[in-house]
Write a protein that binds this DNA or RNA. Structure first.
Lengths: 240, 240
DNA sequence: CCCCCACGTAATGTCAACATTTTTATCATT
DNA sequence: AATGATAAAAATGTTGACATTACGTGGGGG
C-alpha cells in the first residue's frame, strides 16, 4: 500500500485512495479486518484521517462496519451478486441506449479498436476469467452515455465492488469468446445509432453472464457458510 | 436538528442520521455551508465524529466537499436531474419487473390500499407537488423486488437525493391525477404477475414524470447561474 | 470436561489542543 | 473609489491522550 505519489490533497483522501485500491486489487482480501492502529503505523499518520477514509469506504459499500467492533472488507454472497447483476442489467441497458444516442463518432471508433484488440487476445488465450478489457468495454459504454449518475453508479461503485470478486467471475470454456461476440453486437447497435437494439443486446449480454457465473456462486456459498460462524459471530439485537 | 432519541450507537452515527434528515427535509438548504465548529456546539460533541459523519454524507452524494474549504449541501442542476431520472427509469423498471415476480400477495394487497388512499387524496386536493404517498408507492415497489442493491440504490440513495429538491418537482395541473392512474397500471401488471408489462408501465411513468418536470428545471437553471459565481468561485487547477 | 468470572490487553470512539489553510477586515497607496 | 498588502479571525486537518468497549486467557468451581 502506498500513500505517496497520489494526487489527493489531505491525508484522509490519500488513505481513502490507497485503501480503495488495495481492496479492489485484492491485496486486502474480502472479509479481512482493517485495524486502525496497524494502518496508522503503516501509513505514518494518526488514526483520525484513517477513520474518515474508512467512513467513505463504508458508504461506497467496499467495507462493512460494526459499531465498536471494527471494519472489514465486504464479502458478497451469491444472492447479493445475483442482485448486483440485475442492477447491472438495468443500468447498463440504459447506458447502451444512451450511448447509441450520445456517444461521439471518435469514441465509437476507439471502442471498435479496443474490441478488435480484445478479440485478438481472446483468440490466442486460454484465460477464461473476466479481464480488464471486459471492464474497459463496459466502462466506455457507461461513459459514452454522458450521464454522470450512470457513470458514477456503474464505474465508481458497482464495477469496483465486482472487481473485488474477480474469482467469482470464472467462466466456462468458450464464454470469453461468446462474450466478445456479444460485445460486437452491442457495438454494432451503437454504431447504427439504434438505442432499442443497443439496450436489448446489452441486457442480453449481462443476463447471459449471470447465467454462466451464478452456478459457481452457490458452491462458493457452501464453503463460506462454515467460515462465517468462525470469525464474526451473530450479533444479538441490542434492544429495540 | 436532534441527536437524541435516535437508535444509533456512536456519536458519529447519530450525527450522520441527524444531518441526513436535516438535508433531506430541507432544513439544511441546498448549497448551505456545513460548519464543523457550529455543529459541534449545537450537537454538544467534538468535531471528530462530525467529520466522520460528513464523510459518509459525502459518499451518499448528499454533500459536496472541497478540500480545505469545507462542505456544503449538494445542489442539482437540470442536466443532473435529467440524468437521475434516466437512472430511475432503468432501476425502477427493473424493480417493477422483479416485484411482479417476487412481491408477496399481502404486500400487493397493502400496496392497493395505499394507492386507494392516495387516489382519494388526489381527488380532493389541489396539491400539484409530489408528495410522500408518491414516494411511498415507489419505495414499496423497490422493496418488493427483494433485491437489496436495488433497494439501497433507490430508497437509500436516489430518493433521498431527489427529496432534497421537492420544489423541483412541481407539476402541471392534472399531473397528480395522471400519475395515480399510471400507478394503477403498474399495480395491475404486478397483480397479474406480468414482469414485462410492469417494467413497461413503470418506465413510461418515470419518462412521463421527466417530461412534465424538466421544462421547469431549465428556468431554475437560469436563476441559479447568477448565484453560483457569487458564493463559490471557480477553483483554479492546482498543478497536474 | 465445561462453564463462569476476573483481569489484562487490544481495539474503537471521542476529545481538546495544535498546525495549517482560508477568509475577512483593515489600512495604505494609487 | 478601487486595488493591493497585511494582520487577525475563522475554519479545516491532524495529532496524541484519554475513555470506553470488546476480546482473550487463565484460574476456579461444579
Amino acid at each position: 500500500m502506498d500513500t505517496t505519489n497520489t494526487k489527493s490533497e489531505t491525508l484522509a483522501d490519500q488513505a481513502y485512495d490507497a485503501l480503495a485500491k488495495s481492496i479492489v486489487s485484492g491485496e486486502l482480501a474480502p472479509g479481512a479486518r482493517i485495524l486502525e492502529v496497524e494502518l496508522a503505523e503503516r501509513f505514518g499518520m494518526s488514526r483520525g484521517p484513517l477513520r474518515e477514509a474508512m467512513r467513505r469506504l463504508e458508504e461506497r459499500r467496499l467495507v462493512e462496519r460494526v459499531s465498536q467492533r471494527g471494519v472489514r472488507v465486504v464479502r458478497l454472497t451469491g444472492p447479493k451478486l445475483h442482485g448486483i447483476y440485475k442492477v447491472r442489467e438495468a443500468l447498463e441497458g440504459m447506458a447502451a441506449r444512451l450511448s447509441a444516442q450520445n456517444m461521439a463518432d471518435d469514441e465509437i471508433a476507439e471502442l471498435r479498436e479496443m474490441l478488435e484488440a480484445h478479440e485478438r487476445y481472446v483468440r490466442q488465450s486460454d484465460d477464461y476469467s473476466q479481464n480488464q478489457q471486459d471492464w474497459d468495454f463496459h466502462d466506455r459504454i457507461a461513459r459514452g452515455s454522458k450521464n454522470e449518475m450512470l457513470v458514477s453508479l456503474l464505474s465508481d461503485d458497482l464495477y469496483q465492488l465486482l472487481k473485488i470478486f474477480r474469482n467469482q467471475h470464472k467462466s466456462k470454456r468458450g464464454r470469453a469468446r461468446r462474450a466478445v461476440e456479444e460485445h460486437w453486437r452491442i457495438l454494432a447497435a451503437i454504431e447504427d445509432r439504434d438505442p432499442e437494439m443497443a439496450e436489448l443486446m446489452m441486457r442480453r449480454h449481462i443476463s447471459a453472464a449471470l447465467a454462466v457465473f451464478e452456478p459457481s456462486w452457490a458452491e462458493d456459498a457452501a464453503q463460506r457458510d462454515q467460515a462465517d460462524t468462525a470469525d464474526w459471530p451473530d450479533l444479538k439485537p441490542e434492544g429495540d
